[in-house]
Simulated scan of single mutants.
Amino acid sequence: MTERATPIEAESPPTFESLLGTVAEMNTPVGFKAELIRGKIVVSPFSRLRYYRPMRALREQLQAHAPDGHGADTSPFLFRFEAAERAYGPDLFVADESAFEEEGRHADGAALSLVGEFTSVSTRDADWSEKLEVYGRIVPVYLVVDMQDAEITCFWDPSPHGYRSRTTVSHGTPLTVPEPFGFALDTSGF
């Protein structure tokens, strides 16, 4: 018997819209969220309990300085970035509240004025590379709260090539959050 390669008929790769539909239909386990990262559906756990206080402190401070009509929250909403064919469920976000008046399950990433991601062992790489690249083209401010290194980094001034500016401070040091927020973030509780 002679061996020879046999072609396999494969379905074409799934589209961004079909992946979004799959995510919407998923029954993720309690305590987990699903996102579209690098063209794949990635399921990861929600933040650890010790993240609660810094997340609450950040949300409360951001809400007090949010642009008119924008709300700060930690609810598990998926924001779509169609040009990049990605959809993320940020740990914390500030977004135009009108984005939540639409039907559907995925908000437009253009509604975001700020995203905050709290790093964990399982999400750290995506927070520092994949998400930084996508957010850096459209989201005015991106905060990476690095829970492993006890630092917070603020990125701002998005461009087609990513953020043009960044500042990093250790937890406990005030961090300037630029416009449209324009205030010094108290990180002493982080």
Rank of each mutant, 00 (worst) to 15 (best):
F155P: 06
P76E: 12
A84C: 04
P140R: 02
Y142S: 04
F155S: 05
V121Y: 08
E101R: 15
E133A: 14
G89D: 09
A150I: 05
E101F: 11
K131M: 06
I152V: 15
A107R: 14
G109D: 03
I138F: 02
V115A: 15
L78M: 12
D125G: 11
S159V: 04
D125K: 14
E97M: 14
A95C: 09
E103W: 11
Y142H: 10
E117C: 06
E101Q: 14
T123M: 08
H106G: 03
S122I: 03
L112E: 03
V139M: 01
E101V: 10
G104H: 06
A99M: 09
Y88S: 08
F100M: 06
D96Y: 07
T123I: 02
V115G: 11
L112W: 03
C154T: 05
G162H: 01
F77P: 00
A84L: 00
L78I: 11
F93L: 02
F79A: 02
R164N: 09
G116S: 15
Y88Q: 00
G104A: 06
L143A: 08
S159K: 03
F79Q: 04
A126T: 12
A87R: 03
Y163N: 04
Y142A: 07
G104T: 09
A87V: 08
P76F: 11
I152H: 05
E82A: 14
G109P: 12
W128K: 15
V144M: 13
R105Y: 13
G89S: 13
S122T: 05
K131W: 06
V139R: 01
Y163I: 09
G109Y: 04
L132Q: 09
A84K: 00
S98F: 06
Y88H: 12
D125R: 15
A83W: 01
F93D: 04
K131G: 06
V144P: 09
F81D: 00
E117Y: 05
I152E: 03
D96F: 07
A84Y: 00
D125L: 14
S113Y: 07
P140D: 04
F81A: 05
P140K: 01
V115Y: 11
V115L: 09
R137Q: 15
E133Q: 12
D146V: 02
T153I: 08
L114W: 07
F79I: 03
P158A: 07
A126M: 09
S122A: 08
V141Y: 09
S120F: 02
I138A: 07
R86P: 00
E130W: 08
G109F: 01
E97F: 09
Y88I: 10
Y88R: 14
S129K: 13
F79M: 03
I152N: 00
G136Y: 01
V141Q: 05
E133C: 00
I152F: 02
V139S: 05
R105H: 12
L114H: 02
